[in-house]
Simulated assay, not measured.
Amino acid sequence: MSAPVDTVLFDIDDTLCAYRRSGAEVLAAAFEAAGVEPFFAIEDYYDRYSRFADRTDSIRELRTACFAAIADERGHDPDRGRTVAAAYTAERDQWNVDALPGAREAVNRLTADHRLGVVTNGAPGMQAKKLAAIGLDDAFEVVIHAGYDAPAKPDPAPFRRALDALDTDPSSTVHVGNSLTSDVPGAQAAGLRAAWLSDGSTPDPVPAYTLDSMADLHDPPWRR
Rank of each mutant, 00 (worst) to 15 (best):
S179V: 06
L116E: 07
A65C: 07
H114P: 07
Y19N: 05
A85T: 06
R74Y: 08
Q188E: 07
G147S: 09
R48I: 06
L27S: 08
D138V: 10
L136C: 11
V84R: 11
M1I: 03
E25R: 12
D98H: 12
A85K: 11
V26W: 00
L62V: 11
P207S: 09
D13W: 14
A87E: 02
P101H: 13
T111V: 04
D167F: 02
V26N: 00
D13R: 10
K129C: 04
A162R: 01
P154S: 09
Y46A: 08
G147A: 10
P221L: 15
A29G: 07
T181P: 05
A162W: 01
A215G: 12
I134R: 01
M126N: 07
H218S: 08
D13H: 11
D44I: 03
A30P: 09
A194G: 01
A18V: 01
A68S: 15
C17N: 10
I134E: 01
H175G: 09
L110G: 09
E61T: 09
A33P: 05
T168S: 10
Y148L: 02
P207W: 00
T89Y: 14
V118N: 15
Y46C: 09
D13L: 08
A99C: 05
A146D: 02
I42E: 13
A162M: 01
A30Q: 12
A190L: 13
D79W: 04
A85G: 05
M214H: 14
E105L: 06
G23W: 11
L180I: 07
L16A: 11
D72M: 04
M214C: 14
T111W: 01
T83Q: 12
L131V: 01
A90G: 13
D183A: 03
V5K: 01
G81D: 08
T202P: 00
L211W: 02
V26Y: 00
W95V: 09
W95K: 03
L211I: 06
A33C: 07
A187M: 04
V97Y: 04
M214K: 15
L16R: 09
A106R: 13
P151Q: 03
D93R: 13
R193A: 00
P4F: 14
L217T: 15
D79P: 06
D93F: 09
A194E: 01
S172Q: 04
D204Q: 12
A69F: 05
D72L: 08
A215W: 08
E61I: 08
Q94Y: 08
H114S: 12
